[in-house]
């Protein structure tokens, strides 16, 4: 029955993290506010030209989503590292990579998912058409989990450091590049009326690759940070 107890551990981790977040509801709003704020800065910066804003909208929204997700990454293992529960997870009989996957799942449900749901609203403020907004939402739902999974590796590497903040950004952002390119390219193509299935397949491939591969280095990095 080892399998079902491992699955139970996965579910327990997800539930625990969701519950913990629910107890600190106010903190959940901050990344969303940051996301909306960054997107709002662009019209103020480049001017209110509707055509221009519409053209840069996919890129702007995606870059803002990237930064917002980066901002939330630091909290992924921080409190567990400080109160010692991370050490218990490392010592538990269940594979650490699976527990890590549970933590990342919960983290995505709390950061990436709400972010994706707010994005269509912003897209409307940039005058994007309904069809393109649908694709934008789809790319965000496919892409933000990849961001969380890749970011988890870098967070695990830097969790033991006192000033890991800027370093985390330098480690993570180059690895985010493929997601950004495919996602904003898909939305651009959708706005121009081209088919986007190629980009969406590519992003799905990246998502499944990330789900299967990234928990291993993350677990290895956590063990290293704790030793």
């Amino acid at each position: 029955m080892a399998d079902s107890s491992t699955l139970n551990a996965f579910v327990a981790i997800v539930r625990r993290d969701l519950l913990l977040a629910y107890r600190h509801r106010a903190e959940l709003i901050n990344p969303l506010a940051f996301f909306v704020l960054v997107v709002t800065l662009f019209p103020l910066g480049v001017g209110a030209d509707v055509a221009l804003l519409k053209r840069i909208a996919p890129g702007v929204i995606w870059v803002a989503a990237l930064l917002a997700s980066l901002l939330t990454m630091d909290s992924l293992f921080r409190s567990d590292f400080e109160d010692g529960s991370l050490e218990l997870m490392v010592m538990s009989p269940h594979p650490l990579s699976l527990l890590v996957l549970g933590k990342v799942t919960a983290h995505w449900l709390l950061s990436g998912a709400p972010l994706s749901l707010v994005a269509p609203l912003l897209a409307m403020m940039f005058n994007m058409e309904a069809e393109a907004i649908k694709i934008l939402l789809l790319t965000l739902l496919l892409g933000t989990p990849v961001l969380s999974l890749i970011g988890a590796i870098a967070v695990a590497l830097t969790v033991g450091l006192r000033k890991g903040g800027v370093l985390l950004a330098i480690l993570v952002l180059p690895l985010y590049v493929p997601v950004l390119i495919f996602a904003s390219n898909a939305v651009d193509a959708a706005m121009a009326g081209f088919p986007v299935s190629g980009q969406l397949y590519m992003m799905s491939a990246m998502l499944f690759l990330a789900i299967t591969l990234t928990p291993w280095p993350t677990a290895a990095a956590l063990k290293m940070s704790l030793s």
Binding site: L157, L175, M224
Partner: peptide, 27 residues
């Protein structure tokens, strides 16, 4: 510890470099 952390990061990078390269090649 630092050397091991760097090794993990470099390995992640090696997997990613082809992906980054070909995705950038796109435009």
């Amino acid at each position: 510890t630092a050397a091991r952390a760097v090794a993990i990061l470099a390995l992640v990078g090696v997997v990613n470099i082809p992906i980054i390269h070909y995705s950038v090649e796109w435009w």
